[in-house]
Amino acid sequence: MADTDFPARDQGVLFNDGLTPLDENAGYRGTSACKAAGITYRQLDYWARTGLVEPTVRPATGSGTQRLYGFRDILVLRVVKRLLDSGVSLQQIRTAVEHLRERGVDDLSRITLMSDGASVYECTSDDQVIDLVQGGQGVFGIALGKVWRELEGSLATLPSDRGHEPPTIAVVDELAELRARKATAS
């Protein structure tokens, strides 16, 4: 992110602001995360492998395991998508996301990300937004509180999984399997 005169804050979880209490164990599979964020599965996979946005509910632990993305993960995906669509380079987006993670935020609804296409600026007040626009630096802005509310609506229609519950595997012996096939055939 561009160097600005914002006061330092305590370190914390990215987007920890108290808008809506979230179920930390609710997770969304890759296809649902892609649909909610408006990205392709290829982008999702690349960003997970390169560490831009990794799933926090359940990471991939090997072949055949399902990644589960939490609400905040999908929020970051959606913001990354908007920044990319606005012409910000992926390198600059990585810097901005890392800055927010390191710094933490107190109130998501008050943050607006502004960009001139080359740099990303974090604004926490109307005065900072006005200063950027008047200085010719800010070309577009993304109000994170609005993105949060939009995402809540999008995810309400998508299926979620429970991240802490391991998948159940039915153990069936060969005789029981044979009986079940005969019963359905009759």
Rank of each mutant, 00 (worst) to 15 (best):
L68V: 06
Y69W: 14
D73V: 01
L83P: 03
L84K: 13
L84I: 09
V88K: 03
V88H: 06
S89I: 05
L90M: 08
Q92P: 02
A96D: 08
V97L: 06
E98C: 11
H99R: 12
H99C: 09
E102F: 05
E102M: 08
E102V: 04
R103L: 06
R103W: 11
D106T: 11
D107F: 14
L108A: 13
L113Y: 10
L113C: 06
M114L: 12
M114S: 09
M114V: 13
D116Y: 11
G117F: 08
A118P: 00
V120Y: 04
Y121S: 09
E122A: 11
C123F: 01
T124M: 03
S125E: 07
D126N: 09
D127A: 11
D127C: 00
Q128H: 05
Q128V: 02
V129E: 14
L132W: 01
Q134K: 15
G135R: 03
F140I: 08
F140K: 07
G141C: 05
A143I: 07
W148Y: 15
R149D: 14
L151S: 10
G153Y: 07
T157H: 10
P159W: 04
P159Q: 05
P159D: 08
P159A: 05
S160L: 11
D161G: 00
D161F: 04
R162I: 09
R162M: 07
R162F: 07
G163R: 00
H164A: 10
P167R: 13
T168Q: 14
T168A: 14
A170C: 11
A170F: 13
D173N: 14
E174T: 00
L175H: 10
